[in-house]
Design a protein around this nucleic acid. Structure first.
Lengths: 230, 230
DNA sequence: TCTCTTAGTGGCATTACACTACTAACTATA
DNA sequence: TATAGTTAGTAGTGTAATGCCACTAAGAGA
């Protein structure tokens, strides 16, 4: 039926028979705030879950979006005024009565890494307010809207696994950074301390970074060599 | 072209304003055939891609399916007459002009592990034929329908990564099995030989298995201890 | 000049694992 | 009955990765 009829110009009867799910994109945007891994939340301005905190997101628009990643970028631009580097699809969740706006709701969750100052705290269209929330607290918070606590947990786990594999969180870092800054980032993501010596040796063997010749970060103490992505 | 609206008896205007994508589930069902990792393909009986081989799949039915995994199980039951253990969501793919039946098509891909004899080769409703195809060949085959070669690659990579982490492929094995059988499975998935001694030591340290006391697999050569999942 | 703090390096111990070699137990066949 | 062939199972050694600890270096500030 669906398999057998279909020409692009004709409308196959069966495809019209079945209503399709209310389809959204949700964004788990992570950052480091006060040395802890944090996620961007928006306070919902309307029903459902009015007044609760939730991941920013929006409806998939088949007239505007070329593909799923394009939809995620459009929504990030419209709602938050940013484009998202290091975007990665997390998972799809869907089911009956996930969202009272429709009988069946499907969400595709994306994750991005951003420095926290890349978001204007006054942005957030269609949201009363936005804020950064430590992921530990967000996951434990039973008052988050929808099933967003699960999505945040999934974002955190995926990001931790990347760091364990030494896929570095360049999204959190400026173009040039010190090894100390990089290590602090990784520690914030993993939620545990790392050994400086082992960490550097591992980076070294994999040849992931190159020093920016002559450039040092100078500050209160001994200056540190700056590195960039290789 | 189809424009499927999200519908509901009492919904806010926003949910109804936008047409929703044509949403399907695709199944990457893996097995070991002749010592090689293989994927189940169906020959398409109708347009689009009529006569080409594709992953089995079906349309998400919001009237029938409670959630995404339920949809995957319903489709596996209807099309292949099986229920799928060790089901895992792979990824969502979507975009304009993925499928000529609709202006915007979204597919959620699932992966399952099954012994090859769990599928009746005469099954395959709405498909001309079904067959097992070695994943290497399927990935290299530019004539597969839609973007299914990408989905198969993704299924293979996800499964290999699981084996590397010693998440064992119990879906391919009977209740009780020998260490030799388990090792052969893993070798077929990884596409390389493993060292017997190391493999056993790693299993041992992680305490993943327990011997079935007194039970041995007897055959042409020295009998082997049977193990089960712990 | 001394202390404090961060940057950066070196060495030893432990662990995980690859590689090799070996013994054990069964069948089949001469 | 002896022997070859095949799979099951164990043991030991070397090496690579890395955890852990200790050390030196370079700046600021008291």
């Amino acid at each position: 039926m669906i398999e057998t009829l279909a020409v692009s110009s004709d409308i196959p009867a069966t495809a019209q028979l079945h209503p399709m799910p209310f389809t959204r994109i949700e964004l788990a945007i992570l950052s480091i705030v006060d040395g802890r891994l944090a996620v961007l939340l928006g306070k919902r301005a309307g029903a459902p879950h009015k007044g609760k905190w939730a991941l920013p997101g929006g409806v998939l628009r088949i007239d505007l979006d070329r593909d799923l990643e394009g939809a995620a970028q459009r929504i990030a631009g419209e709602r938050l005024g940013v484009t998202l580097p290091y975007l990665r699809q997390l998972q799809a969740v869907g089911g009956k009565s996930r969202d009272s706006r429709a009988p069946w709701a499907l969400s595709i969750a994306y994750r991005a890494l951003l420095p926290s100052d890349a978001i204007d705290p006054k942005a957030g269209k269609r949201l009363e307010a936005i804020r950064w929330c430590a992921v530990d607290e967000a996951i434990a918070d039973s008052k988050l809207a929808f099933d967003h606590a699960d999505l945040i947990r999934s974002a955190m786990e995926a990001t931790r696994a990347e760091i364990e594999r030494l896929e570095l969180p360049f999204g959190f870092l400026p173009e040039a950074f010190t090894l100390g800054e990089l290590q602090s980032c990784c520690e914030a993501i993993l939620g545990r301390r790392l050994d400086k010596s082992s960490f550097r040796r591992r980076l070294d063997e994999r040849e992931l970074l190159e020093p920016v010749a002559g450039e040092m970060r100078t500050g209160a103490f001994r200056p540190a060599q700056l590195y960039r992505r290789r």
